[in-house]
Write a protein that binds this DNA or RNA. Structure first.
Lengths: 348, 348
DNA sequence: AGCCGCACAGCAAGCGCTTTCTATGTAGAA
DNA sequence: TTCTACATAGAAAGCGCTTGCTGTGCGGCT
């Protein structure tokens, strides 16, 4: 049998109530008593029963973090930052909290199931990272879940995700549209007029917003876009590789390729190289996110830096109630254009 | 007030016991009754109280995954694979489980604290990934914790981590020594005789084993190693960059640089390039792990592929009792040498 | 026809903790 | 000295669920 509170109480010659109070430190206990209790805890190697404690106190120390793909540094960086702020071991806040990182794989069902699971665990807070699905039914379902969570006292924070109105969720949204626009304007400023675009999966807010920014830049400069210049694909390297080959097949006169994110851009670089094209002499390439490896590409990738760690940390603090929520419950986090070697003037 | 089992029971006109049995499906319930209960659950939007359930049943559906750095794909890939196998949403196994990914940051204290937290939550299983600290006291403490966990019925699996004898933990260990040896033998076979080595942080099993493999290869070929040829540093890009500069300063005649992992190798490549050296014409570079980005380096990185996803998946299955543990509780997972463009013959 | 046994459903006793309320001892106030 | 007030400690009532045990009604057996 495992050691219970009662065992500790017996050993310390006090009541279970006192042991509980010593452990929680939320009630005056005489120093001598406390010491006796702590000694007993130590001797018996007692470990609190989490579920029992959560049940009785009607609170839990679990914090959920939903990510699309845990193997993708984009999410890993945010998740790590959130976790470092929620007062887990090593965090400054008292009260140790357990971060639960849930991998949705970007599918609507798993996202909902995980939200239910977290609701079931009576999580103290939930942070949702990354773009949302644009499916109407799914958005409604998620919104309903979020509302129930916030109503039950769970703090919900969206990090790098569009706001969810009327749910009580706090949103720290990335300015994907603005970043996309700035990036493409940089290329246009370099003289490019024929730009291919490798978009992410359809029905994702991130995909749509970045693409909209790109198109806004083209429109602002009176560049008419050829429908063949846009290809959709997954957010991974291979998709970028294939999309680039497709793009160059459709129109070999393109002088620049803008990718939906850095991973895709890396695939694009590989495809161009394998096609015997030089970067940026023959074709310029640009990404988005500025993940750590992007600076190591050869040439280094021109991209839009998203302050993932900062945003994640802020989301974590807001989730813990350690930082005030932005006014209106919505904050926009801007990206920063990083001009590097992969972009240059168009070949003449 | 939130909806409870009793509310559902009242609405469905049955006893709470019956509702519980319908929800758990572990006891015969007439189809008509089941339907009535399910309907009530749906109408009331009932969500089981996890802590209460865990307390009463003395089991939990939490599975802990300890990683050193969640932002590092090395761990992200393993964690994702574990998670996909533990029967979370979308997994094949019935019974939804919540994966808890804990970021230890590679520090002993956080590792221990997280283990305690998981013990407190009465986790169903715990998977520890990555190398262990070599600190004697810490190892003893961890071993004691692991023993208590297994004794309490928690399944403990070590993934990419050396075995922990007498703890009841199952180990899937990476053959870091063998991989390191093979890699260096490849370079020796190419004709290199003056090889620099960028090791990871001291006091880590991974660091030591890879270095031992490297030295074994040198010894086997009668190459005497100059102490100046080894530099220790963190497992990140910057450390690799700086270590490489230091290495080339100490001995500019080195013809190859072996890094403790791919991330470090990328830093090494950058340092060499910035020093005006060509890869592999002037200096060959090799890494370890074969992370996804390694193939995108220019030139592509010669490295040792570790089957991270496969090992993680297997660890997950073993943790869930869905796959038998290896005989003796220990399995060695071998790496595979991937010869790519970053290694070539030494400059003459 | 009488009996056994099976298929269900309900009762009620906890699971191990938190917390309210009450009891006690002691110090300071009157 | 007597009363009030404070500082602690304990008793006990749950928190919401699971599950062993106890009914109950019915079909099939002899």
């Amino acid at each position: 049998m495992t050691v219970t509170l009662a065992d500790v109480a017996a050993r310390a010659q006090v009541s279970p109530a006192t042991v509980s109070r010593v452990l929680n430190g939320n009630y005056p206990v005489a120093a001598s008593t406390r010491e006796r209790v702590l000694k007993a805890v130590d001797e018996l190697d007692y470990v609190l029963n989490g579920p029992a404690s959560a049940l009785a106190a009607a609170t839990s120390d679990l914090v959920g973090i939903l990510v699309n793909d845990i193997a993708d540094p984009f999410f890993g960086i945010m998740a790590g930052a959130v976790q470092s702020e929620i007062g887990g071991p090593g965090g400054r806040a008292g009260g140790e909290r357990l971060a639960v990182v849930c991998n949705t794989g970007g599918t609507p069902e798993r996202e909902l199931t995980y939200l239910t699971l977290l609701q079931r665990q009576r999580a103290a807070a939930v942070v949702l990272t990354g773009g949302a699905m644009e499916d109407e039914a799914h958005q409604t379902a998620v919104a309903a879940k979020l509302r129930r969570l916030t109503e039950a006292g769970t703090r919900v924070v969206l990090c790098g995700r569009p706001p969810a109105p009327d749910t009580g969720a706090i949103a720290l949204t990335f300015d994907n549209r603005g970043g996309g626009r700035e990036l493409t304007e940089h290329l246009i400023g370099l003289g490019h007029r024929r730009l291919g675009y490798i978009a992410g999966p359809r029905e994702r807010t991130t995909t749509r917003h970045r693409l909209e920014g790109h198109r806004a830049a083209l429109a602002a400069h009176g560049i008419e876009e050829d429908p063949r210049w846009t290809v959709h694909g997954r957010y991974d390297r291979q998709a970028g590789y294939e999309a680039t080959l497709e793009l160059m097949r459709r129109d070999p006169t393109l002088t620049a390729v803008v990718a939906a994110n850095d991973t895709v851009a890396l695939g694009a670089c590989a495809a161009l190289r394998d096609s015997g094209l030089r970067i940026p002499d023959d074709v310029s390439v640009a990404g988005f996110d500025d993940l750590p490896f992007s600076i190591d590409a050869v040439p280094a990738l021109t991209t839009v830096r998203l302050p993932l760690a900062e945003a994640g940390a802020r989301a974590g603090r807001v989730a813990m109630g350690r930082e005030e929520a932005p006014v209106g419950g919505i904050a926009t986090v801007r990206g920063e254009l990083m001009v590097r070697g992969s972009s240059g003037g168009p070949r003449s």
